[in-house]
């Protein structure tokens, strides 16, 4: 599923978090939103998920051609992975993963056995078989991150949004998870957008990188394009390469 962002502006009080942002993410693409803190990248991600609403006006968000601008988060059902995982601490790992399936309305909701089956399958996929009965507090950061991902994927989202997915992890775990995510994306081809402030992460993972600064998109391009042709001073400086 593709995502179209048309002319989105967002202000918090007098602070302009996003200014006329336009972006298109193609079906099956893996795109990184890269920028320093306070650049508006998380706000943009939250607006796409429906956790935040853009200022009223000409702004529009489309999921695969249909306008979702005024839809709530639970209607949009974009898979969202939070920076600090936001796992349900009072539920086991299996219950966390099953949550999205269990809250479905009656006709769509799978049978209990089918839910159990998908949970087992997802646990295998994130290499946490046998961890279903544990509680989030008994997991390491990397394990929590994978559970958060499995939970988001359980409902079969058309779009996956990740907010600093590896931000709170140590360098070694980060590297492994990065590879794992790329591989996972290549297998499933779910349209994925992730936020990061780490350019290595963005360049290693993403098909295209969007550079944000002070609420403006500075440049969009593949890692090669960006390195070769930074459009402005900020991009060149941020990517630490020389402007030609």
């Amino acid at each position: 599923m593709s995502i179209h962002i048309h002319n989105i502006t967002k202000t918090f009080g007098s602070f302009n978090a996003l200014k006329n942002v336009n972006l298109e993410v193609k079906t099956g693409e893996l795109v990184a939103l890269l920028g320093p803190s306070g650049s508006g990248k998380t706000t943009l991600l939250r607006i796409i998920a429906g956790l935040e609403f853009a200022d009223e006006g000409e702004g529009k968000i489309e999921f695969h051609g249909s306008d979702v601008t005024n839809r709530t988060a639970y209607e949009r059902k974009a898979g969202f992975v939070f920076q600090n995982y936001a796992l349900f601490n009072h539920m086991t790992v299996a219950e966390n993963i099953a949550f999205g399936l269990r809250v479905m309305k009656k006709p769509e909701r799978p049978e209990r056995e089918d839910i159990d089956k998908s949970v087992t399958e997802l646990l295998r996929r994130i290499a946490l078989e046998g961890y279903g009965g544990r509680y989030p507090s008994q997991l390491s950061g990397g394990q929590k991150q994978r559970v958060a991902l499995a939970r988001a994927l359980a409902v079969g989202p058309q779009v996956l949004l990740l907010d600093e997915p590896f931000g709170a992890l140590d360098a070694k775990v980060r590297k492994t998870l990065r590879k794992w995510l790329r591989q996972f994306h290549d297998e499933t081809k779910v349209t994925t957008l992730f936020v990061t402030h780490d350019q290595d992460e963005a360049f290693e993972l993403a098909d295209r990188v969007v550079i944000l600064h002070e609420g403006h998109i500075q440049q969009i391009g593949s890692p090669q394009q960006l390195r070769a042709n930074p459009t402005n001073e900020f991009v060149a400086d941020f990517l630490d390469c020389v402007m030609i």
Partner: peptide, 10 residues
Amino acid sequence: EEEAAMTLGA
């Protein structure tokens, strides 16, 4: 956690 629940369709 509430936001997570919402994105999961609750």
